[in-house]
């Protein structure tokens, strides 16, 4: 089973994750990604009977819901303390264009 990942794919995945990779880093990542995929591919060896429905999570329980009730939010000062930059009202981020 071939899970070869080329440098181009590694650079693309890096870009999606906002990581700037050098070619050397991209090549190393490609190797790591290929090895992870091969590991996960072991699942493909399991024979699944036809009548088994797809399964999306780690539990079979369903319907964890809550009532539509407002609960107190965190105060702004506390929550903005997590931000690298704020003006006390807003988060401030590097300029974003369109």
């Amino acid at each position: 089973m071939s899970n070869a990942i080329d440098r181009k794919t590694a650079l693309h995945v890096g870009k999606l994750a906002r990581l700037e990779l050098t070619d050397a880093q991209a090549d190393a990542s490609a190797k790591h990604l290929a090895s992870i995929l091969s590991y996960v591919d072991q699942l493909a060896e399991v024979e699944v009977p036809e009548d088994i429905e797809p399964f999306f999570g780690a539990t079979e329980s369903v319907n964890a819901v809550r009532d539509d009730e407002v609960r107190p939010s965190m105060d702004r000062e506390t929550i903005l303390r997590n931000a690298p930059d704020s003006d006390g009202e807003f988060y401030r981020v590097p300029p974003v264009f369109g």
């Binding site: 809550r66 407002v70 609960r71 107190p72 939010s73 965190m74 702004r76 929550i79 997590n82 009202e89």
Partner: peptide, 19 residues
Amino acid sequence: GCSTLFGQEPNTQTCPVCT
């Protein structure tokens, strides 16, 4: 459980889940 009211002071209706 944060409120959805429109037009409130910025960042006063948030919590660890929605941030």
